[in-house]
């Protein structure tokens, strides 16, 4: 309606402004599209390289791989920064006469379109980052197996430094410890290998890996309850227009049933968490029983934290 009383010169002014903004928008869209091509191309090219490096890096902490991954992410960040800087300068900082209400309206429209386009770009950027992050994989089963195999091969290999009698390494030690020679009672110092010293650390990661399906079950509940809520909400909305008593009754019953389901699901959450945590700690204790008492205290702490 507001345009109805405008004179011709005002309209042509708006046309000019709109044209200029459109040009900027077109340029911005083209610019963003080119950056998106870069994101896709660079991510696609780097993934096989990173995957290979993740599998072959001889370093215990895969430091070469991690540096490479950081550098790839750094490049993705540099692309994103470029887009962000231009968005700030050319779109947010677009010069126009802000006291002119009509122009402001056109500007807001222009800005929203550009921001929406930027938002799409940003989503692609986040997906690319995730794909790069996902190249990181650790086979904790394999690392643990190596420790087990090593123990098997060394446990009867050592002799007492004092009298030469065989001494048995009766379990997997992950810290240096004193082992008494059964023949002469000398306290020998046994130092585990570098990989065996990682047992406690690998143990937790492996236990988490082995029980992650249980954690997933727990973590999925909010999604499930949300779905139930939406179902219920739709039914409730449909009741507003409904006059048929029988249908109202039927739908109300359905709503109650959904509510009940929701509550039941919600109430299983703590139990599911506990189930996961118990299973995880049981696994961890199996892998490194030497710290089972300490793990138990950690378990109780996590359970208490959850209840808070």
């Amino acid at each position: 309606m507001s345009g109805f009383f405008k004179n011709g010169s005002e309209d042509s002014r708006i046309i000019v402004v709109r044209k200029e903004m459109n040009e900027t928008k077109e340029r911005f869209f083209t610019f963003i599209e080119k950056l998106e091509d870069k994101l896709r191309e660079f991510t696609a090219a780097s993934i096989p390289e990173l995957t290979e490096l993740n599998n072959t890096d001889p370093d215990q902490f895969k430091r070469g791989y991690h540096r490479m991954k950081a550098a790839v992410l750094g490049q993705l960040d540099s692309i994103q920064k470029k887009a962000l800087d231009v968005k700030e300068e050319k779109i947010a900082g677009y010069a126009f006469s802000s006291d002119d209400h009509e122009v402001s309206k056109v500007y807001l429209e222009f800005r929203n379109e550009c921001y929406d386009r930027y938002f799409q770009f940003d989503e692609l950027y986040a997906r690319c980052r995730q794909e790069v992050e996902d190249t990181y994989a650790e086979d904790f089963e394999l690392q643990y197996q190596k420790i087990l195999d090593e123990h098997e091969s060394i446990k009867d290999k050592f002799r007492c430094k004092q009298c030469g009698s065989p001494i048995t390494i009766d379990r997997i030690y992950f810290t240096t410890t004193y082992i008494t020679c059964p023949a002469c009672q000398t306290r020998n110092t046994f130092e585990p290998s570098t990989q065996a010293k990682m047992l406690e650390h690998i143990g937790r990661s492996l236990a988490e890996q082995r029980t992650r399906h249980l954690l997933k079950e727990h973590d999925e509940i909010p999604e499930k309850t949300q779905a139930l809520y939406l179902q219920r909400h739709h039914l409730e909305l449909s009741l507003i227009q409904e006059n048929d008593k029988k249908i109202i009754e039927q739908k109300t019953a359905e709503i109650h049933a959904l509510e009940k389901q929701h509550q039941e699901l919600e109430s299983t959450r703590p139990a599911l968490y506990q189930k996961y945590l118990r299973a995880m700690f049981d696994e961890w204790n199996k892998i490194n029983p030497a710290l089972a008492d300490e793990h138990e205290k950690f378990y109780i702490r996590l359970l208490n934290d959850y209840a808070k």
Binding site: K161, I167, R187, N188, T189
Partner: peptide, 12 residues
């Protein structure tokens, strides 16, 4: 660099 040390026994 990371050096993988094997297990060893000593006595003081």
């Amino acid at each position: 660099e990371y050096i993988e040390e094997p297990a060893k026994v000593n006595a003081r």
